[in-house]
Design a binder for these strands. Structure first.
Lengths: 204, 204
DNA sequence: TGCCGTTATTGAACAAGTGTCAATATACTG
DNA sequence: CAGTATATTGACACTTGTTCAATAACGGCA
């Protein structure tokens, strides 16, 4: 429509632009609706260029999901110091706020990863691990707070993972179907759940 | 290859066969990799026949997921009488055993539903609600056990839903990545988690 | 037993999207 | 201001979703 002159960017810039656009578009459509055609047109480039940068559709999707996951991890990074149980609260708060701010995109990430390839699932898994492993890492260096409660046992690993899935479900349904529960209440529910779950197990 | 003679089945039989095959195939590939081509070849029929029975690809996917969901609900129905907290244990046990027995199929359900469109998610949601609503239903008619703990509040509804997601994650990872945790321990973890989660909330 | 009508089933044809590659034009360099 | 490296294109081959008139298997009826 506008100009027929092709604009030539550096590989980094173009790659970055395409990934950003991919993540943004993922907010309004599902992963398999994110076709090469749509993205090429939206970016104002030819289809061929996408193949030049990403090889094929799956690889592109993978790159988009990975970028979204990295985004999530980066934006919910907890502070490195402070009381462990307080840092958990901060982490959870950051997570909730992130999901609320990027709800559509986050939903697409979850949906896309869960329903997709093994590779996609793996990326998603890594992201969740990155979020939850903090719990154990925080543990190790502190002798109080969570440190005294959550030891690194198979049962607790399982529990933390389960808690992670629960948290995801909680935020998503809380946002999708608002009830009387406030944001702070939700955060409190999530934060108190983890110690409660661990403490409820007879093993310890 | 083998025979060129076409076999003519009754609509019920054919439909059933195609759905069974769909569920089975979905266990080893993602939803969008479950193409009409693949299924037609695997079933030994023409692509056209699938369209005759299901209209289009989405409708077929929907039918496959629905079949998997119905299967799950039917096979994990809890007994109608007995101590509430004991029935919870029985329910959880049935659920775990079902997932272990039909791991591939259950994976299909989860993968298919999570990654799909709103209709698919709704089917999946219904299935999970069918499982969790029992908790509240069991509640109402009993004055002891869970009945005294889990009242029907927004917070508790949210918690039960979250617990459901956690349970799913627990069984799946427990089965996919076996650690030292035994089946009975897993069941105990899941069963004790629900009351623990509810009790941990200050509200009540 | 053998025709006959119902209808389950097919295969060819079309649409839309994925992937390939030699040709082209843009920005940089001397 | 050429000359060159290479980012970018557009046309083409191929896979996959979808439609529909033609075909053939099975049950019923003579």
């Amino acid at each position: 429509m506008t100009a027929t002159t092709r604009t030539r960017l550096s590989p980094q810039e173009r790659r970055s632009q395409l990934l950003d656009l991919g993540v943004r578009l993922l907010a309004t459509r599902s992963l398999d609706e994110l076709s090469i055609d749509v993205l090429a047109e939206e970016a104002g480039i030819s289809r061929g260029l996408l193949y030049h940068y990403f090889g094929n559709k799956h690889a592109f999707h993978e790159a988009v999901v990975r970028r979204a996951a990295d985004d999530l991890i980066a934006q919910t990074a907890p502070p490195v110091d402070g009381d462990p149980i307080e840092r958990l609260l901060i982490s959870v708060t950051a997570y909730v706020d992130y999901v609320v701010a990027n709800y559509e995109g986050y939903l697409s990430l979850v949906k896309g990863a869960a329903g997709g390839n093994d590779t996609l699932r793996e990326i998603y898994d890594e992201a969740r691990s990155a979020l939850t492993d903090r719990v154990f890492r925080e543990d190790a260096q502190a002798g109080s707070g969570l440190g005294t409660i959550i030891t690194d046992t198979p049962t607790n690993r399982l529990l933390v993972r389960g808690w992670s899935a629960m948290s995801e479900e909680l935020v998503l349904t809380w946002h999708a179907h608002p009830t009387g529960v406030s944001r702070d209440e939700l955060i409190a529910i999530m934060a108190t759940s983890l110690p409660a779950l661990v403490a409820a197990q007879p093993d310890a």
